[in-house]
């Protein structure tokens, strides 16, 4: 029942809102995976990032999307927690380091990936300044090492820092550009993986900066 409601919500509210109020300019759309399991890695400037990433997929697949989100923020009160866990299927991640919380998180992640989920992860850790990237945290490398056979798809989103940046309440319509890169996999060691990921994002950012000049 909830699934039917969610699909209607995605199809009739979320998608039209994104296309009408925002507008997407998607590059290399052929790199968007047809099915899970996979991990989408993206830069993070706005709450809208998750919604935009969701609309890249057909409504059928949107049920399978699981964003990794900070527990202290998205489970803060009952209403937000219900929306986060029921509508957006978040995988809560505690920002405080504790052994049990970590184990719980990895267990949940593992379960979702076995269930063909499309996991969204923001390696910057939180929303930063509009259209500026912060240093990536190494958690993604750890996850990638645990799941070396799962494709990791880098996605760069530009423009949402303009539409709804951190700490702002007013939404301003803007068309955002999304670059989807080819999937990468974990090889050899963590440092190398982080280096590879960073280079891919720098290239994508550079591609857009060049056009602005």
């Amino acid at each position: 029942m909830l699934n039917i409601f969610k699909r209607i919500f995605y199809l009739l509210i979320l998608k039209p809102l994104v296309y009408f109020c925002l507008g997407l300019n998607i590059r290399n759309a052929e790199n968007i995976p047809k099915d899970g399991p996979c991990i989408i890695v993206s830069n993070h400037n706005s709450h809208l990032d998750t919604i935009v990433l969701m609309t890249l997929f057909p409504t059928r697949k949107m049920l399978k999307i699981s964003p990794i989100a900070a527990a202290d923020y998205f489970l803060a009160n009952k209403i937000i927690a219900w929306i986060s866990t029921r509508i957006f299927n978040i995988i809560p991640l505690s920002r405080k380091v504790s052994k049990t919380a970590q184990e719980e998180f990895y267990h949940e992640l593992d379960k979702r990936l076995k269930n063909n989920s499309i996991v969204i992860l923001y390696p910057e850790g939180s929303r930063g300044e509009p259209d500026k990237m912060m240093k990536f945290k190494s958690g993604i490398a750890h996850i990638a090492k645990l799941h070396p056979d799962i494709p990791i798809i880098p996605v760069y989103i530009e423009g949402l820092g303009m539409a709804l940046p951190r700490g702002e309440a007013i939404f301003v319509p803007a068309i955002c550009t999304i670059i989807v890169e080819k999937a990468i996999y974990f090889e050899h060691d963590k440092e190398e993986f982080m280096e590879k990921l960073k280079n891919i994002f720098d290239d994508m950012q550079q591609e857009l900066v060049k056009e602005e000049i």
């Binding site: 509009p130 259209d131 820092g161 303009m162 940046p165 702002e168 007013i170 301003v172 803007a174």
Partner: peptide
């Protein structure tokens, strides 16, 4: 610039 987003609004 992001500073001008309120103007656009």
């Amino acid at each position: 610039e992001p500073d001008d987003r309120k103007l656009l609004f």
